[in-house]
Computed example of a mutant assay.
Amino acid sequence: MNRGPVALHRFTVGLIGLICLVVGLGAIAHQAGITPVTEWEDRLDASWATTAIDASWWWAVLLGLVVVGLVWGGLLIATVWRPGKADELTMPSSAPGQITVPPKLIAGAVAESLSANPMFGEVAAKAVDDRGRRLIRIEVTVSPGHSYDEVAAALAPEVRNVRQAVEGADIGVQALVHLEQPTTTQTKR
């Protein structure tokens, strides 16, 4: 996740945690009979809720809280929403100027190249916009008979080629390896 969404999530969790901590400590102090808290209880007006509901500003405050909650909740949901597709990639060209390439073409070429390798069971490559960061995401599934060094040796040249191809563009390359679970016959060897 990018820094902005992470900061929003951490602030939200911290604020909710702080509110819960204050309320919890207040309840414990009240039950323990700690003097300042029990004195504050005597100064509270028990009828404030009914008088507040009858006041003309009550509905404006309530509506404001609902709007703030909806906007805040919408932002939190939007930051964890599934990644979208990266539409176009503008890269510097060898001639003066820039070229525009759909990154899904690059991802498709990588997937086709990796699919030829029998080590990989399933291969998928996508161009995604992951919360504001554009990526070419390569995902491969590997059977348990292969070591990490074998997988890295087969995958690294493709990742390096893509990074060189998109150098100078605002896009990253991400490789994910899914290891299949060994079957009982494979573990007995």
Rank of each mutant, 00 (worst) to 15 (best):
D170M: 10
G24F: 03
V177T: 12
I19D: 07
D130P: 00
V159E: 13
S143L: 06
P118V: 05
E41Y: 07
G97V: 07
A156I: 03
D87V: 09
P5H: 06
V23D: 08
A95F: 14
E180I: 01
L76Q: 12
S113M: 07
R163N: 15
E112Q: 15
W58L: 06
T185P: 03
N2W: 03
R10E: 13
S56T: 13
T185L: 11
R137A: 05
V140E: 01
I138R: 01
V162C: 10
I136Q: 04
G74N: 07
T79C: 03
A124G: 02
T79R: 06
V22F: 13
P182L: 10
T90K: 12
P92F: 07
E41C: 06
D129I: 05
W81L: 14
I99Y: 07
L21K: 04
E180G: 05
L89V: 07
V151H: 04
V110C: 10
G64L: 12
G33S: 08
I106M: 11
G97Y: 06
L76W: 02
W81I: 07
K85Y: 05
G24K: 03
N117R: 06
G132N: 01
A27M: 13
S147Y: 05
V68E: 02
I171A: 04
H178V: 15
G132L: 02
W40I: 09
V23Y: 08
K126Q: 13
W58S: 14
W40D: 07
V142G: 00
G121A: 04
G121S: 07
R163F: 03
A60H: 14
V101L: 15
E112F: 10
W57V: 10
A32E: 12
D149G: 11
I138P: 00
M119R: 14
M119L: 10
V110E: 08
P103I: 10
E41H: 13
Y148H: 09
D45E: 07
L44V: 12
T187Y: 09
P103A: 09
T51K: 12
E88Q: 14
M1C: 04
I28T: 10
V6Q: 13
K188C: 01
W57P: 02
G69K: 02
G121C: 03
V128N: 04
L21D: 04
V142F: 01
T141G: 01
A95P: 03
G69E: 07
R134L: 03
E122I: 11
V68I: 15
I138L: 01
I171L: 10
G69I: 04
N117Y: 02
M91P: 00
A78R: 07
A7T: 15
H146A: 05
G121H: 09
A124D: 12
S143I: 00
L15D: 04
V22Y: 09
A27C: 11
G84K: 11
E41V: 14
A124Q: 13
R163M: 14
V173W: 05
A154N: 04
S113V: 06
A127G: 03
W48N: 02
V80P: 00
S94C: 06
I28K: 03
C20V: 15
C20S: 14
G64A: 14
T79E: 01
V101S: 06
G108W: 00
A29K: 03
S56K: 14
R82P: 10
V151S: 02
G17F: 08
V162K: 05
R133P: 00
P96C: 06
G84T: 09
K126F: 06
L18C: 10
S115G: 04
A60N: 09
G14M: 08
